[in-house]
Amino acid sequence: MTNSDEYWYCPFAYGYTNYSRIGYAKHLLTYTDVVSYDGKKLSTTIGGTGLSVSAFSKHQQEAVAFTEFVCSPQYQINGYIYNEGQPGYLQAWKSQLNNELTNNFFSNVLPVMENGYMRPRYHGYLHFQDEAGIYVQEYLLGKQKSESLVLEKLNEIYMKSIEKNLSKVFI
């Protein structure tokens, strides 16, 4: 969408501030709230990337200091945005300046985040998401007609993902 005029609307897309910043791509994107269905606003899955320090790092003190720095409210509100980051700090999302820099990305997307469902973070979930998506897509494309068979398969994949998680916890 940022490089051609072929598409002009996408009801569900990952939200990245870069695409809402002047000069990042050929076309500037404007993000909005989630669409409604039967008069009810839909909910999306939200997630993100975490920040951690490896127990095996040869530079733990430096890594911890960097982590503290980039997670500090002052850097989240200012420096993180200026360096094209997407902060996790609510005040940064409510900042007028940050919204001016990003075509109101933060104020437009905040209702989506507040209404969203936090993606599960257990080991094995991403495998479930990838595998289950295939069956959901086949059903939506009409390649699979039986809802109950699709749900059975999703449940089977989910149970395997939980087993993977439990095996990691107890090892």
Rank of each mutant, 00 (worst) to 15 (best):
Y158R: 09
Y125N: 11
S72F: 05
G48K: 08
K160M: 12
N98Y: 06
K164S: 13
I162H: 10
T30F: 07
S95W: 00
Y139D: 05
K26L: 13
K145P: 00
K160G: 10
Y89Q: 01
E62W: 15
F105E: 00
N108R: 05
A132Q: 04
S72P: 00
M1I: 11
Q60S: 08
D38N: 14
V169S: 12
C10I: 08
Y139P: 00
F170D: 01
F56A: 15
Y7P: 09
D130G: 12
L97Q: 05
T2W: 05
D130Y: 14
N98H: 07
Y37G: 01
K40V: 12
W8E: 13
A25C: 04
L166I: 05
L126P: 00
E152N: 03
V53A: 10
V64E: 11
F105Q: 02
M159Y: 07
A55D: 14
K168W: 09
I46A: 08
V136A: 12
S52A: 13
Q60M: 11
W93D: 00
N83I: 07
A65G: 10
N155F: 14
Y37Q: 03
V169T: 09
S43P: 01
N103D: 02
S107P: 00
M113V: 11
I77W: 01
V34I: 14
S54T: 08
Q76G: 02
G116T: 02
Y31D: 03
S36M: 06
L110I: 01
N98C: 09
N3I: 01
E114V: 01
M118R: 15
V150D: 06
G15N: 05
Q137C: 06
D130W: 14
N104A: 07
K164M: 15
Q74A: 15
N99D: 01
G124W: 04
S4A: 12
Q144I: 12
T17C: 05
D5T: 03
Y19E: 05
D38Q: 14
V34R: 08
V109L: 06
H27Q: 06
D130A: 15
P87H: 02
Y82Q: 13
A65F: 13
A13D: 12
